[in-house]
Design a protein around this nucleic acid. Sequence first.
DNA 1: CTGAAAGCGCTAACAA
DNA 2: TTGTTAGCGCTTTCAG
Lengths: 352, 352
Amino acid sequence: MKENCKITINDVARAAGVSKGTVDRVLHDRGEVSAKSREKILRVIEELGYRPNFYASILALRKNYSIACIIPEFNEGEFWELTEKGILQGQDYASRFGITVNAYMYDQYDLDSFQNACAKVLSSGPSGVVIAPMFRNETLKFVKELSDRQIPYVYIDSKLEDDGYLAYYGMPMYQSGYLCADILTDGREVRNVHIIRIERDKRGLSDPTVTRRTGFIDYIAEHYPDCRISNIFLDPKNRDARYEKLDRMFEADPDTEKYIVMCNSRVHFVADYLKDRGIMTCRVVGFDVLERNLSALREGYVQALIAQHSDRQAAAAITAITDLLILHAPPQKKDNYTQMDILNRYNCDYYI
Amino acid sequence: MKENCKITINDVARAAGVSKGTVDRVLHDRGEVSAKSREKILRVIEELGYRPNFYASILALRKNYSIACIIPEFNEGEFWELTEKGILQGQDYASRFGITVNAYMYDQYDLDSFQNACAKVLSSGPSGVVIAPMFRNETLKFVKELSDRQIPYVYIDSKLEDDGYLAYYGMPMYQSGYLCADILTDGREVRNVHIIRIERDKRGLSDPTVTRRTGFIDYIAEHYPDCRISNIFLDPKNRDARYEKLDRMFEADPDTEKYIVMCNSRVHFVADYLKDRGIMTCRVVGFDVLERNLSALREGYVQALIAQHSDRQAAAAITAITDLLILHAPPQKKDNYTQMDILNRYNCDYYI
DNA sequence: CTGAAAGCGCTAACAA
DNA sequence: TTGTTAGCGCTTTCAG
């Protein structure tokens, strides 16, 4: 299936009647070669099916490639933890090729900290960058700078409308909302749906779930035109306030079976409430495999989770850059929409 | 995050007051070293945090590793096609390390052809083997031989009860049946369930879905103790006979909404029938992402598919052997149960 | 039991 | 424009 490529640069040199130095020159396009030699060498390479041995290559040019990853910082059990796991996996791969990988975290609610991270990355002189963008304008400025410096970059989680990225790995957000609505309603008679959201003051930061919510709402509009949708905003830092809001929501909805959805990763807020109140009559769907969400799934307070392997996304991003650096091979596809995984209590234990 | 390990074998040698030849000897345990030197060298390695550069290593010992993969042969669109894709991916990875990968196919209904494939593999003198076992006894004999020759082997798809394998990558079969029953019944009132099976004459070959069926039946027994389960056997080679059987089945079941399941990858047989007969009132669940199954899913003749990334299983198997060969690192886990993916019409397009 | 030395295939600086 | 050469870090004879 694959030739045992024992043809070395020496063989090529001999066959072409030149020295290996010259062959190396045409291989790496570092000029200074007569058109005639060049042509001849290329033909010989073709004929012999020469494939460079890149151990030797890496060994000889002991370059210090490095990849920088820019992601939001996080606490244990939060969404970005899984991404970091993926960075570690990718690091493992990259290190096989002598490439170092570094993570730069920023506070996703603080523009300054983001700019700070970008500046640090830039000054570290990376060979490639992986970035999970939250601040639109600042990110565009940053990647512009990367482009100017010819540094390849890969988006993960979400991407922007610029065109210079090497690749993107993330979930199809709109479809995930659509899918979510299908799972939530599941062919039942549904008259009220509650979308639970997180209060966030958004200075310059793009809401990462707005597209998903659109997909959700579209599905409802198409399949349940008479269904009412209510939006409830929860304060992530204030439990009592959350409970109060949810209490009010429950009072207002006349149906006993309530349909609840959360388009971000915090559905455990709802699950905690339901558990404390001893309510088991809701149908709840959320996103992402935080440990707290999984518990809620197992205990039956959440019926389904839609998950993505954000670890694989990060790892794939690093692999893409590694392969570009080492093999000079760009990824097969630029936009890589990763699969949407439906988890319930029976398959969630095999997920990670 | 990772040290720039510039410590070479020379540094170690110097620090230990010996030559690099001696260091190499203790590194590879090829004896002939005094206890004193040995000890000293080990300590120095520890202190300096020496990590061998395996480009140099691979370059120096230009070995010709090869990995053999033994899987059933297949026609286009059949289950094993995806596995082959994974082999190609794994090959891609392995070739980065100068390892060649070869596939050996056998007729899964023909013991001779299996033995033949095994013999070929053995005589090719592989450095590692990936195997999808169908014939129990013959496989056990074969892997015994591999063990004797110290050739590591990895099971994919299913595994046997021997203990010498390096790793296993496959789906948890029992749970997949259990999950399947949950998705099929989905909280509804179910009084009849039809399990559609494939007629196969099984001389010495283990039925790969028996465990899955057990999981399915257990779920029904636990959640629907009064539900009747019927088994229908279809001839894969005779369309008319299949239709006749299904006609009879439909006549016998009084309910309009019928619950149908197939525990192998051929649920498209049922879908074709339903489509031709114009029946849309059934709830049908099957397994695996054959193109024909996906079409049935999109068109609504099948409600859900439970899928597995058998490509990733194969690729992971090859990666495991590669890493063992190159890095001398065995896989982190021996038994790797891959996730069970639930597919419906809204997420299936993002699956592969 | 140990050291010296010759490569593995490729790169890059230096001569020519 | 080209050839020569000294490594990159490790393995493996071959002497001692």
